[in-house]
Design a protein around this nucleic acid. Structure first.
Lengths: 360, 360
DNA sequence: ACCCGTTCTTTGATCGTTCAAACTACTCTC
DNA sequence: GAGAGTAGTTTGAACGATCAAAGAACGGGT
């Protein structure tokens, strides 16, 4: 015990946890002894006494096949960095299905291993979220609850990226460059995220050109996620001779597939924009919409722990207007959308000037 | 306390930790009470008493730019899964540079937050490894210590992937298909990993065709990591009219760039093979060498905790022959290397039959 | 019956912290 | 100058598990 500074253990504890109650002179003396002896409180002892693990659990996805796998990765990185700033730690687990994941939640909570969880890859009527809410366990979902259900229930915290706004910005960027027949390559209707993104394109096209439903449908292509699917779909489209000026895509995988198809078909300047700003998009020069995962991660912790707090808030303590956060993403313009013969619109879009740096 | 089964706390503890010392009848009775009450030991209390955190720390890289970023991700996933099987948890941290990373090690160790660490992205004379060895903190490096230094020091545990063997297998696969002028697209000489991979190609070429140094040099292309760099280098090569039959590459990024260049130059069947088997390779049908990160992760824990153990072994307790593990990777053959007009060699190489499944 | 060795179970002590209450020293008030 | 109030510090207890040693139960041999 570092009571070598001639004070009691409790005073040491106070210096570390509530410095303001300790007289400055004493505080300095203790601090000096701490530095000198290199004393660090024993984390487990503290956690035992305070009944707080200061740890947040998150499931590490089994690398979701596609190239967008790195989204979670980047989000996780930002989350860990911000958590560190709040003296929180992140612990990982893996699960094979939602039921398994719930079992992990229960196990980790019962063992006082975690104070709360971050839920990713949310689905319609997600059983995990229902369970967490029922058990009154603190959590934040990355992903809105799609569908009619309680998206504004203050007991179900969530953060999400405003895909609609992002795709709208991408579309308007192309419109601003003088293009008119801008297609949308998205997933089959029915996925919340996909429909949301498409709605951004739709809004931009309707606003700019007043298109009707049939015109919009004509400009829409569907492909399930994956580079080859997109490639095939776009090849087919090109073969059918549909006159398109550009493509906005629901993901970088779709964007990459589209780009490969149009380039091979001999259109080196045909503009394509993806979504997610994955490393691959950067690598191949594909314009894309960046989710600003750093901002999302910060918002996640703000919901879970309050704006400045250093501990996880109890379930159900959020104000109605502080229970959800929708982050506006940012368009990153690269070669794939400004190589073209069309004049540069000179807008205020972000440019990616680092395009070649820091490849490892 | 679950002494509701009519026994003392210690007996409950024994049922959980050393069931063999408890009489079966008692054990069953206690187990029943445990299940019934849903009792879980308080992890922090146990950790305080046993002076073991049962936690391994690992740094989460700031997403290393390139498309190979997902390597750590997949390794991490496997590591977490295996750790769970040994009742271990993984905790993450981020660091801006080696010194910062070392500071994290010290902090986490002094706070009894971790029992050991896994070190990734190792370099020549890695300061982190020197520090860990000096402090006698348990650790395993993912990556051999390149250079002359003590690669066989039993105090410096490491696992790595045998890049040489992987590239050799890839090259031999092409040779088996009747190709002869097989080039190697690699990073500039001087990186341990890169030189190791090139040596596999060299070995295969020398064995098959008895090439000399100048012939080998003629077939070697250099590009720094990154899709565009590879693309440019290969475009240049094609323009210069060097007659090549196929390309083996040091990474998927190089492979992807090469593939884009040869496809655009009108060679849809020119075989290309990458390395790392990233999701992107899978997505675009690029043959690649898979690092078998699951095996690497298992080996990591075996070095850190012994073949079956459930706790981290003290530093320096490894036998000389159990301190390092070199994992042989596996060639995954896809369209990029077997579309060709050349006859299929009918070898025993692994095929990737899942190519389109489970894209999210 | 008695003692003895085994096998199984219980009892105190302890890990290192923080909580809650008690104590000390000092200042202020009337 | 006695009592009340306040700021700073110390003391005992507790968090919930495991360790080490002591105690109880049970057969078996003499």
């Amino acid at each position: 015990m570092a009571a070598r500074a001639g004070v009691s253990r409790q005073t040491v504890s106070n210096v570390l946890n509530s410095p303001e109650v300790v007289r400055p002179a004493t505080r300095n003396r203790v601090q000096l002894a701490i530095d000198e002896l290199g004393y660090r409180p024993h984390a487990s002892a503290r956690r035992l006494r305070t009944r707080q693990s200061s740890t947040i659990g998150i499931r590490l996805d089994p690398v979701a096949g596609g190239i967008s796998g790195s989204i979670l990765d980047r989000y996780l990185h930002a989350l860990v960095a911000h958590a560190d700033g709040r003296s929180m730690r992140i612990t990982l687990f893996t699960a094979s299905d939602p039921a398994d994941e719930i079992a992990h939640y229960a196990r980790l909570r019962d063992g006082a291993d975690i104070d709360g969880v971050v839920v990713t890859a949310t689905q319609y009527d997600d059983p995990r979220i229902e369970w967490l809410a029922r058990e009154r366990m603190p959590f934040v979902a990355f992903g809105r609850p799609w569908g009619a259900e309680r998206a504004d229930d203050p007991d179900r915290l969530w953060v999400d990226v405003d895909g609609r706004a992002g795709v709208r910005a991408a579309t308007e960027h192309l419109i601003g460059r003088g293009l008119t027949r801008i297609g949308f390559l998205g997933w089959p209707a029915g996925s919340g995220t996909g429909d949301d993104r498409r709605s951004g394109w739709e809004a931009a096209m309707v606003t700019a050109f007043g298109l009707g439903a049939s015109a919009l449908a004509e400009l829409t292509i569907e492909a399930t996620e994956g580079v080859p699917n997109a490639r095939i779909a776009v090849e087919r489209l090109l073969a059918s001779g549909a006159g398109l000026d550009a493509l906005v895509c629901a993901s970088d995988a779709l964007g990459l597939g589209a780009m490969m198809a149009v380039r091979e078909a001999g259109h080196p300047h045909f503009p394509v924009i993806g979504f997610d700003n994955t490393p691959v998009a950067k690598a191949v020069g594909l314009s894309s919409v960046d989710q600003r995962l750093d901002v999302v991660a910060r918002a996640t912790l703000e919901l879970l722990m309050g704006p400045e707090g250093t501990r996880v808030l109890p379930h159900g303590s959020a104000a109605a207007d502080a229970a959800h956060r929708l982050i506006t993403p940012q368009l990153i313009v690269r070669r794939s959308s400004h190589l073209a013969p069309v004049e540069e619109a000179g807008g205020s879009k972000a440019f990616d000037h680092n395009e070649r740096e820091q490849e490892e």
